[in-house]
Write a protein that binds this DNA or RNA. Structure first.
Lengths: 190, 190
DNA sequence: CGGATCGTTGATCAACTTCAACGGTCGTGG
DNA sequence: CCACGACCGTTGAAGTTGATCAACGATCCG
């Protein structure tokens, strides 16, 4: 419970007097590597705040290959928001990349939290606005460059993260095959 | 001013008694075809709600080609939220695809609106949550299929919209060249 | 030790781009 | 109202990018 309070305070720009009243809506969950928080076909019952570790969101395409669409590190919220909002079945998986600790805010808990603490509407408005901005940036990035350029830019921008995850996940996230990633790496060990 | 009130009421699930108090923060703007609301290098000063017509967001890549990343039709909000949130220069353009009428909510006006009408925090939280969900869906869609499949699915899903916009914009949005789109069409007039 | 998982390498192949050229249409100025 | 130019869509040839498939080596973990 060490990261959430400062995160809320940072976004709201004020110190929280009643964090206990907010905290009680969250449930901590510890995940082992490769453990799932959500599987395809199930409803995304909660919104997850990463306290420690790393989550990824992926789907399985028609060829049976996992396609990673998103990672979430410390401080980030993750859920399938289409599924979460309407409490309908999801087409995604959410899985721990490494041992991970999250705070889970269930759909019902979030409703009650927002009702009892209306200032949290503002917090989540800002969280989603930021995520929306990040998505716009991401889409631009996907359009703007070849896959090779994408790779180099990503490595340059997030070198520590590239160290942290296996290569096949990086390839999956960048939208190409592990074989192609190997070729890029081979070319560049110059 | 006909679309905004029902949209707010729909998301908040209640009727608005004081719409006049909200309305006054918005400024209507009429745009001719190809007129710009935002150009690269300028700050995205407002958040735009489309009343009638169609906007597109695009950037110019290093080859000088316009890449369309987003369209906004009636009921949709559009802004470069990274630029808007921090009032810093944008890397995007926002342009009218056809004669378009928007309601503009400037950054300062939005701040005041949210301060005076805190229930609007909930409204914008829901707007951004939906947009975030749409972005997740969009990213999945970009990853999931070849460009050819993307084209067919898009035409099937939004046939009326495909009629409405020129082909070179559709190609730009789908992430390929107008020439390739021509080939796809030629193949498929079967 | 043995099997599964991960990364690598190379050959072949399909998807898509690029470039160049052409025809139609639309709108604007004369 | 016509003519011209700009813009848009089309076609085809050649070139690139990245996928696929198959085989192999290394490493990790039981």
């Amino acid at each position: 419970m060490s990261l959430l309070k400062p995160h809320i305070e940072k976004l709201l720009g004020s110190t929280l007097s009643d964090f206990e009243g907010i905290e009680r809506f969250f449930q901590p969950i510890s995940l082992r590597k490769k453990e799932n928080l959500l599987v395809e076909g199930k409803v995304c019952k909660a919104n997850y705040f990463v306290e420690h570790g790393c989550l990824r969101m992926f789907f399985v395409n028609e060829k049976g290959v996992e396609q990673t669409t998103q990672f979430a590190l410390e401080h980030w919220w993750l859920a399938d928001y289409a599924s979460f909002s309407s409490q309908s079945p999801s087409g995604f998986y959410i899985q721990a990349v490494e041992p991970t600790r999250v705070l889970s805010l269930s759909y019902e808990a979030q409703e009650k939290l927002l009702h009892e603490h209306p200032q949290m509407e503002r917090y989540f408005r800002l969280v989603h606005q930021r995520a929306h901005a990040a998505a716009q940036f991401r889409i631009r990035w996907l359009y703007g460059h070849s896959k090779e350029e994408n790779y180099y830019q990503f490595v340059q921008r997030y070198p520590e993260f590239v160290q942290r995850i296996p290569q096949y996940l990086l390839a999956s996230f960048l939208g190409f095959t592990p074989e192609y990633l190997s070729q890029l790496r081979a070319r560049n060990i110059s």
